[in-house]
C-alpha cells in the first residue's frame, strides 16, 4: 500500500465547497414548469375530419394497444369503416409508429404528457380531436 501523502488529491476535492454558493440547477416544479420542446412524443390527437378509419395504426402497433371503436357521429365521409382508434395507455410505448403509418396524417402526438389516475383500467384514451 502506498503510504505517501497525496497532497493534491487530498486538497482538490474541497473545490466542491465552491458549489455551495451557486444557484441550484433544480426548478421549483408546480410553480415553474419545464418547457417541453416541439415534437415531444406525448398524448395522441386525431383529426376526426381526416381520419379514414383504415386501422393501419392498429396493424402496426406491436403492443396491440389500439382498438378501433365506432364513431358517434360521422365527421369524415371518407371514413368507410366508421371506426376511430382508441389507445390503451397501459400498453402504449409512445414509439409513434402509428403516426408514421397514418395515411392522412390525422393521428399525431402532442406535447402534453401528464395524466394521473388511481385505477389502471381507466387508461383507455380517446385521442383529442384537433
Amino acid at each position: 500500500m502506498n503510504t505517501k501523502l497525496d497532497i493534491k488529491g487530498t486538497i482538490s476535492p474541497f473545490n466542491a465547497i465552491t458549489k455551495l454558493f451557486e444557484h441550484p440547477n433544480t426548478i421549483c416544479y408546480p410553480s415553474v414548469k419545464k418547457e417541453i420542446p416541439k415534437g415531444y412524443r406525448g398524448f395522441h390527437t386525431n383529426t376526426l375530419t381526416d381520419c379514414i378509419g383504415c386501422a393501419n395504426c392498429q396493424d402496426v402497433c406491436m403492443n396491440e394497444a389500439i382498438d378501433m371503436i365506432p364513431i358517434e357521429e360521422d365527421k369524415n365521409p371518407k371514413n368507410s369503416s366508421g371506426c376511430i382508434p382508441r389507445i390503451d395507455y397501459g400498453r402504449c410505448c409512445w414509439c409513434s409508429l402509428c403516426t408514421d403509418v397514418c395515411p392522412p396524417s390525422s393521428l399525431k402526438l402532442e406535447e402534453d404528457c401528464i395524466w394521473a389516475n388511481d385505477n389502471s383500467n381507466n387508461f383507455l384514451y380517446m385521442p383529442k380531436d384537433k
Binding site: 502506498n2 488529491g9 476535492p13
Partner: peptide
Amino acid sequence: PLYDNVFFDNSSFKKRAI
C-alpha cells in the same frame, strides 16, 4: 476540471480503487 478535482484526482478514490 471539476470532475477531475473532486473525483478522478481524489485521493480517497485512488486509495479505494487502485
